[in-house]
Amino acid sequence: MAPDSLFYSPMQNKPLLVIEELYHSYQEGGDSRPILNGINLQVAEHECIALLGRSGSGKSTLLNMLAGIDTPQQGCINIMGQAIHDLSERERTLLRRRHIGFVYQFFNLIPTLTVAENIGLPLELNGHKEREIKKLVGLILSDIGLGNRWNAYPDQLSGGEQQRIAIARALVHNPAIVLADEPTGNLDAETGEHIMRILLGLSKQLKRTLIIVTHSLEVAEKADRILTLNDGTLSTHGDPHW
């Protein structure tokens, strides 16, 4: 397999995620605007991929499809051996609950839950016992350096702190894949750098597969592979440095 192939995996691990011939378009007035035009991709376990592209190129759409919250018009997404399009809405939700973590540009924390409750929510949804939830939340809070903000509400935190909580929430239940949609897009350069360090560090430490959508080449350069989505097609951007 050639090193620039989209099916290339530097770690040569077994594929965790396989995308085949993915097509999707949006209706704009009477016209159809293709957004994904035959996407093929294979992502290995523990791999980190950065996805670049212009605004409106379909990066977030692709991420939503990987999370099973949007469905392609054509093509197949296979996560951990399960074809998403064969799953019911409920099964897709359960797959997302167990195996996928999400980090957003705008944090998306639940304003009426405390820091600990926000992080504990995926664990509770996955049926963990309360004692176990407390333990895991405590561990990850110290990992992200916010062990003292246990009972704070999101609106009492800075943007960087909120994003760290969002990262903790995405990773706490040990998902196989973490999807991050412009996680530093709403933060200053220094904080963004700090956040990326935490996200990549934790993903590496916990051996998670990470897919980051970003506009920043600097952020992308920290990934194993950089892919660019342009005119609905995916291409490699260059050799990974990290």
């Binding site: 919250i69 409920r90 939700t93 999400f102 929430r169």
Partner: peptide, 16 residues
Amino acid sequence: RRQFGIMRLLGATRSE
């Protein structure tokens, strides 16, 4: 709505 959307993203089912 936003809150429910986040919950759905985190894996809460419709019936829940």
